[in-house]
Simulated assay, not measured.
Amino acid sequence: MKRLGVKGRRLVLGLLGLALLAALLFGALRAGPLAPVRVTVARAEPARLAPALFGIGTVEARRSVLIGPTGAGRVQSVAVDVGERVRAGQLLAEMDPVDLEARVAALDAASARAASALQAAQAQLDDARARQALTAANWRRHAELAAQNFISPGALEARQQELASAQAAVGAAQANLAAARLDQQRLAAERAAVRQQRAHVQLLAPFDAVVVSREAEPGATVVAGQPVLRLIDPSSLWVKLRLDQGRSAGLAAGLPAQIVLRSDPEHPLPGQVARVEALSDSVTEERVAQVRFERLPATLSVGELAEVTLNLPETGLAPTVPNAAIRRQQGRSGVWQLDAEGLHFRPVRLGASSLEGRVQVLEGLPAGATVVVHSERALEAGSRTRVVAALAGAPL
């Protein structure tokens, strides 16, 4: 076999080098940094959106009360248990009255004594008035006799002094009677106060409710205001809903709602926004609303999580694009449009969005335009692109 000469070997090596260079160039153009950016695209189709707001909430009671004593004491008995339904005015628990019964008995006896003293003061007043009437009559008779000079002026002055003493006795009797009446009123007020305290040791239900917790057991000592039982009105249950502030546009009272409880995800419940709280949560950047049920389910429990969807009015006809197509360039929202001239960024003004992942474009993009949804790397104006059906990697 004839060996190649020097020129032949050089020719072979040159051909191999060209082939390698061509392969490298082909790889760079197909898969390297010079390759077109693979993208997925969508058309800006005119449509009417049915926007909605979505958030997570918890079931709470609008009417929830803590039942406890107005003074410190020891729990004597608790008559109800968790889960029981109670009626308004029903006895729930009772505190140890300590010495209240003895104090009521003492005040009853003092009130009876005050009544006797009042009768005695009234009798003294009647006696003083009778003496006053008698001395007044005697003084008039002696005044007539003195006018006819039948008695001396000294005798008339004695009768005058007797009349003044009788009038003073009437005043003293009236003062004693008033003091007896005031004493009787004081004892009656003290007795009413003690009886009120005695009544407060009985903890009664303020309205028809359900017992949700027992905070203290018999024998425990509680202070004033410390709860013994917690009650809720089962007819006042609603959902405390939290919504992202950035996606809460359109939130208002009266919006129809769809409530899905974690305990029954297969049966959505209709509801309505009852109230939008004026105070938002600045830490979590959420707005808070209260959503009531149109009809309460039988197995609803307080504290249960719920997914709530609020339906907003349908929008007008406008181009819509996927949410994933929206980009931020130099502080402006827009889309990468792909047309015959290539790839370029178009700032747009956005409108309402739907839970299906589409958003309205109010200005800046014509209907039917092709926009980039996902790309395998960051885009720049004029970038070479290759449209594919899907991207295997994480989209940008």
Rank of each mutant, 00 (worst) to 15 (best):
N149Y: 13
A205K: 08
V212S: 05
L134V: 15
Q202F: 13
P206L: 13
A166W: 13
Q132C: 02
A146W: 05
Q202I: 03
L187F: 05
Q185M: 10
L145V: 02
A172F: 02
L177Q: 15
A179D: 02
W139P: 01
V211D: 08
N149T: 06
A147P: 00
A188L: 06
A133M: 11
A158T: 13
S152L: 00
L182I: 14
L204M: 15
A224S: 15
S165K: 02
L182D: 08
E157L: 09
A166G: 12
Q202D: 03
P218K: 12
W139E: 04
N176A: 15
A180P: 04
A128S: 06
A199C: 07
A164E: 07
E190H: 03
Q184Y: 02
R191M: 08
P206N: 10
N138H: 11
L163K: 11
R141F: 11
P153D: 06
A193K: 12
L187P: 00
A180G: 11
A205W: 09
P206I: 13
D126F: 09
T135P: 02
Q132H: 14
L163S: 00
I151H: 06
A220E: 08
L125K: 15
S165E: 07
A164M: 00
V170M: 04
A173H: 06
R198A: 10
A220R: 07
L156E: 09
A128E: 05
L229W: 15
A205C: 06
T221Y: 12
A128W: 04
F150T: 01
D183E: 12
Q160H: 05
G171T: 05
Q160T: 05
